[in-house]
Design a protein around this nucleic acid. Structure first.
Lengths: 329, 329
DNA sequence: ACCGCTCATGGAAACGATTCCAGCAGAGTT
DNA sequence: AACTCTGCTGGAATCGTTTCCATGAGCGGT
């Protein structure tokens, strides 16, 4: 056959082989009008040469990269991994490649990645925003087609999020129904939505608000553990804990075990996000399931169909009762 | 300031603003030679206009996309998620974007993705290959710079893998030391390396080979569960199970629970891959830890430094003993 | 028979960068 | 003083595609 490394087959080669002009080849291949005979000749030539149009040339001309950019805090976190999977599976049906970046929940790193994105003329981006969304202002001004997932931090950007309010409310109602009065919320920094939902739920159910019962941690496992251990140690009066995410839940289980606090005898635990290990855990964890994959998929749909877009899509959550909650001790 | 959507700033604008030619701007920005005064003028103009070179233009000219492609079977699997994280973190230090694709362990889907990759002129690719590697032949011929991770299926492609042989051997030795004689291996299709290591280890330790004791499953959770349940049900004589991956291990735990087989009383379990939930599981799982993130990182290093490359990098595994193994019942 | 309309077609411009090449100025050498 | 050498500089070609526009053929209507 050909040598070990062969020059790329270009549209010019196809045109020559088919005995037509390059313009005609381009038209045929992108579904423009052409006579049946010409079309056949071009198609045959393209197939014979195994021609693949260069995305580079096309994108330069079209002034946009087909693919989409995806920024998440951490692919290692099962929740975001599923979100990524959702985006990928939607993008696949459009045949578009997805460029993934990890922000580590750090606005500075996020800004850096945004820079790379626009350098590559990515005009479609899905992101789990890290900070207050201010980082995105310049990109937005340059006409970027952006969708936020999981968090809603700007009113001018369409967002796909889980229904935090109802999720938190259901969980708190459930715990209150079991007799709990002092319920703590283990939150990651930036989960203002959920914190607000939490204090709102407490108020709605006539429980006293104690600002010290919402504990904040950074996104890392270490920080989560420290927060959970601190809470469990210094507030023996809390009888139930709501963890704002799966790493926080994991940390709570680990800390409880270390401090010899029994779940659910000593303290009840509800965790945000249903991950596979929630069922394997001892005890199996009661969770607020979020449609992580769906969030990604819907966000991708939004970014593709860029017609008039609803400002926010809210997806339902579901309380999955297992064995990590008991009556107030 | 400017309007809501502003035209992109090109090298031509910078040249004009600095009163020099485009060639000079390009040289200054890519570190070529220029007089100190010119350099300063150009840099100032570029900064003032907030100029960012278009990767599209550059790549078209250079005939290659800077970024790297990454193909994994499933981002939802913690092991691959960590591998992806490793690649991403290495790529970040080079400032290169990473395009991720999910193959679902399906050679056909893989071939499709390879097509997309070369369409986008990605000349650097890291992949966890799905089939026998035959899919890659055409891409390789076109001069693709490819590195395999986690699996080694072609001798002509540099690969980064965990030390399966020693990992399996250590685990089998450990189980045999506990008195086990009938040990089964739950394998995913395509894990021929590990299966070979397993039968090799049995032979080395003088145990009889029973081909029915290696059970195969596809990559899905359902298939894994079916395989695990089948094994546990039909072979009550096996006293220990080695699971070839974390989804297989998860399936084994679930199936055992369902069938009321106690771990480790009735059957001992060792799982490949140390995932966060292994410790949270009941009982905590003894695992063969693989340096997933490192595998990704090293693979990325290899694909960047494309100097003379060692054919295979083998990374060590470690047996982490927890509580899922006991003496033979 | 002529006009005008539609339609297929190919040449050429454009996208934004890199890089070859030639020109030119200034310094150093004989 | 002429010549060479070095080093900076800008014009122009190039990468592979899409798309604008002009051309020409075919054809139906009056």
């Amino acid at each position: 056959m050909s040598g070990p490394i062969s020059r790329r087959v270009t549209i010019k080669d196809v045109a020559e082989a088919a005995g037509v002009g390059v313009a005609t080849v381009s038209r045929v291949l992108s579904g423009g009008s052409a006579s049946a005979e010409t079309r056949e000749r071009v198609l045959a030539a393209a197939a014979r040469l195994d021609y693949r149009p260069s995305a580079l040339g096309r994108n330069l001309r079209r002034q946009r990269t087909g693919g989409i950019g995806l920024l998440v805090p951490d692919v290692t976190d099962t929740f975001y991994a599923r979100l990524v999977d959702g985006v990928l599976s939607c993008a696949r049906s459009y045949g578009e490649p997805v460029t993934v970046g990890v922000t580590g929940d750090d606005p500075e790193r996020e800004a850096e990645l945004i820079g790379t994105l626009i350098e590559h003329s990515m005009d479609r981006v899905i992101a789990v925003p890290s900070g207050d969304g201010e980082t995105w202002a310049p990109a937005l001004r340059s006409g970027l087609n952006l969708v936020f997932a999981d968090r809603r931090v700007r009113a001018d950007v369409p967002s796909v999020v889980a229904d935090d309010r109802s999720g938190v409310l259901t969980a708190v109602e459930y715990l209150v129904g079991l007799g709990h009065r002092r319920i703590a919320f283990l939150a990651r920094h930036g989960q203002s939505q959920r914190v607000a939902a939490f204090t709102g739920a407490l108020a709605a159910l006539g429980l006293p608000a104690d600002p010290e019962l919402v504990v904040h941690a950074r996104a890392s496992r270490d920080s989560a553990y420290a927060a959970a251990a601190g809470l469990l140690q210094h507030r023996p009066d809390v009888t139930a804990v709501l963890a704002g995410g799966n790493v926080l839940g994991e940390a709570a289980v680990l800390a409880a075990r270390e401090l010899d606090v029994r779940i659910p005898r000593d303290v009840s635990l509800v965790m945000f996000d249903d991950v596979p290990w929630a069922e394997l855990c001892s005890p199996p964890l009661t969770v607020i399931a979020q449609p992580a994959q769906d969030i990604g998929y819907r966000a991708a749909e939004l970014v593709f169909r860029q017609g008039r877009r609803p400002p926010t899509v809210t997806l339902p959550t579901e309380l999955v009762v297992r064995a990590s909650c008991g009556p107030r001790r």
